[in-house]
Write a protein that binds this DNA or RNA. Sequence first.
DNA 1: CCCGACAGTATCTATTTAGATACTATGTAT
DNA 2: ATACATAGTATCTAAATAGATACTGTCGGG
Lengths: 113, 113
Amino acid sequence: MELEKDLFGICPYTTAQKVLSGKWSIIILYHLGKKTMRFGELQRQLPDLTQSTLTKQLRTLEENGLIERKIYPQVPPKVEYSLSDIGIKFKKVLAELAVWGNEYIETLKDKNC
Amino acid sequence: MELEKDLFGICPYTTAQKVLSGKWSIIILYHLGKKTMRFGELQRQLPDLTQSTLTKQLRTLEENGLIERKIYPQVPPKVEYSLSDIGIKFKKVLAELAVWGNEYIETLKDKNC
DNA sequence: CCCGACAGTATCTATTTAGATACTATGTAT
DNA sequence: ATACATAGTATCTAAATAGATACTGTCGGG
């Protein structure tokens, strides 16, 4: 998950794979692509991961520059997550991924349902 | 990596994430998208993974229906790998991924080079 | 009779990633 | 004084993924 210098000038595919690896990155980006969300709201969209896992995934995405984290100095705390510029650009990939994902699901149905 | 039945009708994003997880899936699909290749040829394109790792990755992609494996009954053995129909459709995603990956690499350069 | 080419397999280990569970801080409302 | 809401952290364990290394089978050529 580390992005070292020797990555520069290197294959866009391997770069993308590194950034997207992990079990939740794509769906988190999808949700944040719809709108900026607070931590709790995002968690309610994703009931299958625990709080600590979600925190870790968000930190990784933030380290990789895909999302931004805005802390409001309040109590109880308020933290908003949103896509960064490069994260917003990723929405084009998400769109193709959605089309393809649905086609893929169709092929599964044909095979064994 | 298992694709169970309860996946049907489910989110295209999580489905896509499952299929793409792993360190090499995207780049393997990219290479096979250019042309059908034998095992050895593919391995020469990807000098950073060992033979056993490549075999495993290919098996997973095959199980998930993304690629096809054609065995020629010869000696020495000849096995050709190619994209399946749904694998060919994935090329649209790859195209967007390449655009985005390059943009991403640019943002990295801006930051710390 | 031995060697090399090709595409593997079989084990074992290491690394990476995810998850479970319990705990924290603080201002406001009761 | 106590409880609640929010967004965490800290540990520890489990599961998934990748990699290293050594071994296999068979035909043809030398």
